[in-house]
Design a protein around this nucleic acid. Sequence first.
DNA 1: ATGAAAGCGCTAACAA
DNA 2: TTGTTAGCGCTTTCAT
Lengths: 337, 337
Amino acid sequence: MLSIKEIAKLADVCPATVSRVLRHPHLVSEEKRDRVNSIVKQTGYVPNNLAVNLRNTKTYKIMAIIPEVIRAYNNVIIRSMQDIAIEHGYSVLLGDTQSLQSREKAFADMARTREVDGIVLFCSRFPFDIDHTVDLATQLPPMVHACESTDMLGIPKVNIDNVAAAREGTEYLASLGHKLIGVVAGHSLTPSTESRLAGYRQAIDSANINYNPNLISTGNYDLNMAEEATQYLMSLRPRPTAIFAFSDEMAIGCLSALHKLKIKIPEEVSVLGFDGISYGPFLNPALSTVAQPLQQIGQACMQLLLPQLNGEPMQDCNRVLPHELVIRQSTAPAPVY
Amino acid sequence: MLSIKEIAKLADVCPATVSRVLRHPHLVSEEKRDRVNSIVKQTGYVPNNLAVNLRNTKTYKIMAIIPEVIRAYNNVIIRSMQDIAIEHGYSVLLGDTQSLQSREKAFADMARTREVDGIVLFCSRFPFDIDHTVDLATQLPPMVHACESTDMLGIPKVNIDNVAAAREGTEYLASLGHKLIGVVAGHSLTPSTESRLAGYRQAIDSANINYNPNLISTGNYDLNMAEEATQYLMSLRPRPTAIFAFSDEMAIGCLSALHKLKIKIPEEVSVLGFDGISYGPFLNPALSTVAQPLQQIGQACMQLLLPQLNGEPMQDCNRVLPHELVIRQSTAPAPVY
DNA sequence: ATGAAAGCGCTAACAA
DNA sequence: TTGTTAGCGCTTTCAT
């Protein structure tokens, strides 16, 4: 692997000139510029970015830390982040943590060790140890906490109003006449799940439906577990006539379980999802859902991160974006017996 | 951001000692070790890895370059790569190229610029310009080409036998009595698609079915386009009684289109997918598919990459892994009229 | 066991 | 316009 020195020697100039040709060509005479460029081409020389970045204390890389990169839900978010990042000269690297705390920390540390300029965190756990006696912003790298952020942290956050979103979803089901509304919740302890459960409860209460904790099952945001949870819900007597799954992926598990049980959707049981993944319209039946503004989430993350990357101080803000109830074919009025 | 020098000053030792405490603590007396450690803890000092990596010419990072990270198909592959990488002290960073050549090159260049130690390439295009008059291995960073590699390159490759896999899938459909077997192909020009088309053709010929190019449609490995392609196939007269989609995701599009057309699966039309994504069993009906050995693919990638990261020369090998026909509910004997 | 010093590869200020 | 030089932050000889 050639260094700038050797290129300089080959082109019979000093290393600084090679650097100039590569970064500020207008500062170099045409003659030397051509000489250097031809050597660079011949040798296939590429600067060592570790050195460049060390020198410039800047990597132009952003780390997006994601519990399961594969979840359909992340698709649009990642795209919109990446598009904006690239416009501004940054690359987005994805870190898939598989929900493991050790991996969350490892990826997050890439910002503290200067291997990336900033991070966007989609996990619920906070990957840094914080000394609350000292100013937060000085301890933390440029970062944004998205989708699973609590309100206790003094950092930029991007969220939807999970309480309201789940409340409206539940209200919609109640308005269809459903009285027994089962829930397939996500990970307990995650802020999103807690908030959505709270919203569900609010809607149940204000619809004067008796709150029944047996109707709450947990699917851990996992398709397989959601299928099992649905089997459990369908074993209850009286049986729920609607299921609210707190993610579209879990809703797929619900649909699958109901199909296997030969329960008609939505005639016998309605299914409402959450997220608005792109598969939704293609499922059978097409999935009604509480859609998140995925593209806006990605955009907001970048809007809050980029200023920090330019040296502006971290702000304690919480960008709350609008959700939307999308009604397709998987929900219908409650059956009358 | 503190540097090692300032830590050294605070602990009243020299920078080298701080470095030793962090990397080879046994070389330092207990007294100084404690002093340094306590300062490190107090200040939250973290070494600048750009400097460390520059000095050590090693990053312990691997870049996985993926056309669409979100594709369900990548899930298991990514996991198995990551598990092995971590065992060996490496992190895996994911680069989502959205099938854009510029992004493929940008991520791949991170290896040439030393920001990562090696790459695993899942794209069909080769992101480096090669001078064929010179030894390949010296021009390329440690790398493995997986899933979409052609046989012209002198680098380690991981693949399944796409020709055989598609042939067997088609033979299976033919054995069910299907004579009109539609195809929803992937990107034309990608090696995987070309090979699978060849395999399809082989099976058609050896089953003495008349090859009809009108039955080949293209879905670009995209769910929406696959839905359109299926609509087209269903508009043909006589109509195909089976559809072979070259990815499970496209098969979802097929299912969706058929549902909308009220065509019964598998009674009227059989659908066979390709890949073996984890959603498969949850679809309605559960999807029959030609499964790839996703976990083995990830493992093989790491097995071929890790030696290169340890300085061993690049080998021109092609690891071909076994596929498997998985029969579920979406395929059945051809209808008799 | 510890410190001094060189150097990883690059860039930018400064001088010429 | 070009070269010289210092230094980004770290690690590792080498010397003590």
